[in-house]
């Protein structure tokens, strides 16, 4: 379970960033990327975080994964405050982006083993889990080839295996299908579905509203760092004045 209470993230801007953000007269030193955000993702549910570029989705997901610390507010992962024990929180998290984020000079087996080691998995558990995943994802034929020589589909499978090797309770996806072809996107969507069946907590950010419609149980709309909508998919449907999720999102943003 993921729980965010009044979470805010403020960045100190560099000189160059100030020029981009503010006018020449008004160059703010601070930038609030996430502003008093509160929401909850329950186990076995899929939470979709949507909003335009630069709205604060990635920063929110990075704070959930403890890569960044919130300036204020509390994030609980399975009941543990991430500010108190980040390592414990990270042990129950798998993180994935649309970039495969792999090391070209390692093999898929070495890559997955590395993340198993970082998660302090013992040899027997790793061997069993690795075999299951490699069988399920049909990875055995390329398990020992260098990642740099693999196709994008094979790389994506390796990335999935790396994310779930330690059997995390929570999986965080940051725009997982952006820029990917249909086949590769499908593998990720399958992963989200399977993880939901395994009663895991899933949060993902996306620009693809069809994906949100298909996968999400709960939806959060973030705009300019503020959560302007948070509720179940049926609540979101109720907000709809048109038949399109895209139009509903735009309406919510325009009315914010």
């Amino acid at each position: 379970m993921i729980e965010l209470s009044d979470v805010t993230k403020v960045f100190t801007l560099t000189k160059d960033q100030r020029k981009i953000v503010g006018s020449s007269e008004l160059r703010p030193k601070l930038f609030t990327a996430v502003d008093s955000v509160t929401f909850k993702c329950d186990s076995g549910k899929v939470f979709a975080l949507i909003g335009p570029n630069g709205s604060g989705k990635t920063t929110t997901l990075r704070m959930i994964s403890t890569m960044m610390s919130p300036t204020s507010g509390i994030i609980n992962i399975n009941g543990n405050n991430t500010a108190e024990d980040g390592r414990l929180a990270r042990k129950s998290i798998g993180f994935m982006t649309n970039q495969t984020a792999l090391y070209d000079r390692l093999s898929p087996y070495e890559m997955v083993k590395y993340f198993a080691d970082l998660n302090s998995m013992d040899k027997d558990s790793f061997d069993q889990r690795c075999k299951d995943i490699f069988d399920r994802l049909d990875m055995n034929s390329f398990a020992n080839k260098r990642i740099g020589t693999l196709s994008s589909g094979m790389k994506q499978k390796t990335s999935i295996a790396r994310t779930i090797i330690h059997d995390p309770d929570i999986i965080v996806f940051d725009e997982p299908t952006t820029g990917l072809d249909v086949m590769t996107s499908r593998a990720i969507i399958e992963l989200i579905r399977n993880s939901k069946e395994e009663k895991k907590t899933i949060i993902f950010s996306s620009h693809r509203m069809e994906e949100v419609k298909t996968l999400a149980d709960d939806i959060g709309v973030i705009y300019n760092g503020k959560m302007i909508f948070s509720g179940s998919k049926s609540d979101f449907d109720a907000e709809m004045e048109s038949t399109s999720y895209d139009d509903t999102l735009i309406n919510l943003i325009e009315n914010a």
Binding site: R62, M67, F95, A101, L118
Partner: peptide
């Protein structure tokens, strides 16, 4: 992009 995944590990 592997730094993010590394930072999300324990």
């Amino acid at each position: 992009g592997s730094l993010e995944t590394l930072l999300s590990s324990p």
